[in-house]
Amino acid sequence: MSALTIAFAYVVGGMIPLTPYIVLRAVHPAFAWSIAATVVALWVFGYGKGRFTGSGPARSALQTTLIGGLAAAAAYLIARIIS
């Protein structure tokens, strides 16, 4: 049960940044929408997590968004440097 819940949550989370690439044909508008959707989702998710765990929701929201943004920025920059 635990495994299914984790896997399902992963799929739901993963489809958020990917959906713009499925819907739109051009890479860069898709990228912009992907960033917007994921930043909002990370913020909401972090906020909810902070509420559930009892640590500050705003702090948790900021932390989650920064970590997600940092990971994506690192991936984008490394890809740009290499290619």
Binding site: A9, Y10, V11, V12, G13, G14, M15, I16, P17, L18, Y21, F31, S34, I35, T38, A41, L42, F45, I67, G68, A71, A72, A73, A74, A75, Y76, A79
Partner: peptide, 10 residues
Amino acid sequence: GLTVPFALAA
């Protein structure tokens, strides 16, 4: 799920 696919797409 939010972090890794997002970074991959980026």
